[in-house]
């Protein structure tokens, strides 16, 4: 500080005030930068905060399909299942989907069942929920290399299909998800064509393991898990289990599927869980079970080989990946 004579003594900041002001400024900068850093960090690493607010669904447990777990496998928690979701319509960040899907309207809802069927029909939500529900605990293996064990509530897709009476020429089933930019504004960042579409061969769709799930942990599905009704095909990678289904169409040819359209080299139509066929960018031999420390061996057909391997007898699973 210069004390040039032009400045009247009254305008010279006394040393003490100067130091105080300096201390104050430094404190403000400390507070400002650390608050900004904290805010940035927390914004870009959102934590899912989930609660099981669904309504209870009465269901019977089917022991023949729940007793298949290995002795060391246990159910994933509701927080894990409802806080970590791939649902690109809402967000491509798995921890963010729950919050983004919070206000998704799932009632009223209808599922149009059409195509090569004798009795095409649209089911409203009430009719969907009227199917006799079972609790089915399945492994869920994501193509990204993680997995969970999930206690679904639902009913075999075969039950619904038999009501509409597929024609003899029907060979495949095509599914379509709900999509609407108003409710799913972040879907513009998904990088995949929407609405999401999936498909199964008719025999896969009719298989007793294939489920239309309406709930988990005894209550209706959380929005982020595909409310109000979704497909569950436990021996295939998770992306085959299409969420929030609005349309089911029986066809006479292999229907287009979203991830196959996005990248045919990486995602095939079948996408059966198979530890011996690697994804081009990573191995599928092992998986990280959510909630566990290390990794586990991935099982052929996700551990359902004894029930589904016959569907693919004689097929080259390397070609039909």
């Amino acid at each position: 500080m210069s004390k040039s004579p032009e400045i009247p003594p009254s305008e010279i900041t006394p040393e003490e005030t100067f130091l105080n002001r300096r201390f104050f400024m430094k404190s403000a900068i400390w507070a400002g930068t650390t608050v900004a850093t904290t805010g940035l960090y927390r914004t870009f690493s959102p934590r899912a905060d989930v609660e099981n607010t669904g309504t209870a669904i009465a269901s019977t447990a089917d022991p023949s399909v729940t007793s298949h777990l290995l002795p060391d496998e246990k159910l994933n928690t509701f927080e894990e299942i409802a806080g970590y979701n791939n649902f690109y319509e809402f967000s491509t960040d798995k921890s963010e989907v729950a919050a983004k899907a919070k206000n998704f309207v799932t009632n009223p809802w209808s599922v149009e069942v059409t195509g090569l069927v004798q009795k095409p029909r649209t089911f409203n939500l009430e009719e969907i929920l009227k199917f006799e529900s079972e609790e089915r605990t399945y492994r869920f293996r994501c193509v990204e290399g993680w997995s969970m064990v999930i206690p679904w509530v639902g009913f075999p897709l075969a039950k619904l299909l038999s009501l509409v009476e597929p024609m003899s020429g029907a060979t495949h089933v095509a599914f379509t998800s709900y999509h609407d930019l108003k409710q799913m504004p972040d879907s513009v960042f998904a990088g995949i064509d929407l609405p999401y579409v999936e498909g199964l061969r008719l025999d896969e769709a009719m298989h007793p393991l294939t489920l239309l799930a309406t709930g988990l942990y005894g209550k209706t599905l959380p929005n982020q898990n595909g409310a109000p009704v979704r497909l569950v095909v436990p021996w295939k990678y998770g992306f085959k289990s299409i969420k929030s289904v609005v349309k089911i169409e029986l066809t006479d040819k292999e229907p287009p599927t979203t991830w196959n359209l996005a990248n045919a080299r990486e995602y095939g139509f079948y996408s059966n869980v198979n530890p011996t066929v690697d994804h081009p960018r990573w191995s599928q031999a092992r998986e990280r079970r959510i909630g566990e420390g290390g990794t586990r061996e991935t099982l052929m057909f996700n551990g359902y080989a004894d029930q589904v391997a016959s569907l693919y007898a004689g097929m080259d699973l390397r070609k039909n990946f």
């Binding site: 690493s45 934590r47 899912a48 894990e80 806080g83 970590y84 921890s95 993680w146 990280r288």
Partner: peptide, 10 residues
């Protein structure tokens, strides 16, 4: 224990 469902990935 607040790193989310998949701490390694996070």
């Amino acid at each position: 224990g607040e790193l989310g469902a998949n701490p390694v990935e996070f």
